[in-house]
């Protein structure tokens, strides 16, 4: 129990950040129309690809002679980048296709 309270005290700011972000996430999304659910999901998918930063740090701090850490880190950076780049590119491609009636008429 001592540990638990110590942990809360040590990470006070982080815990605040988490809780506020949770509310923000709910607030930001709750108004989304169903037409955008797919792009939203894939865009959000790309955003959690920020995990790649963790992979970059892990690899950047590994001892270059520690082959196990290096290879696991290498794979982590690859899949993390895949998540980020793939996610943003595919969302962009999808949203590029959405057109409103007005825009369509002016093109014709």
């Amino acid at each position: 129990m001592q540990d638990f309270f110590q942990f809360i005290t040590d990470n006070e700011q982080m815990i605040y950040l988490i809780i506020l972000m949770m509310f923000l996430g709910v607030e930001v999304i709750s108004q989304v129309p169903s037409i955008l659910h797919t792009p939203l999901m894939s865009g959000a998918n790309a955003i959690h690809g920020v995990i790649v930063i963790g992979a970059i740090i892990v690899m950047g701090e590994s001892d270059a002679n520690n082959y196990l850490a290096m290879s696991i880190g290498f794979i982590a950076v690859i899949v993390g980048t895949l998540n980020v780049v793939g996610g943003f590119v595919v969302t962009d491609k999808m949203l590029g296709m959405f057109k409103s009636d007005k825009k369509n008429n002016s093109n014709n």
């Binding site: 950040l17 972000m21 949770m22 996430g25 659910h37 939203l40 955003i47 959690h48």
Partner: peptide
């Protein structure tokens, strides 16, 4: 943290 939590809670709501 922000990216993760934001997507985590947004995803849950979705």
């Amino acid at each position: 943290m922000t990216g993760g939590i934001l997507v985590g809670s947004a995803g849950t709501i979705l």
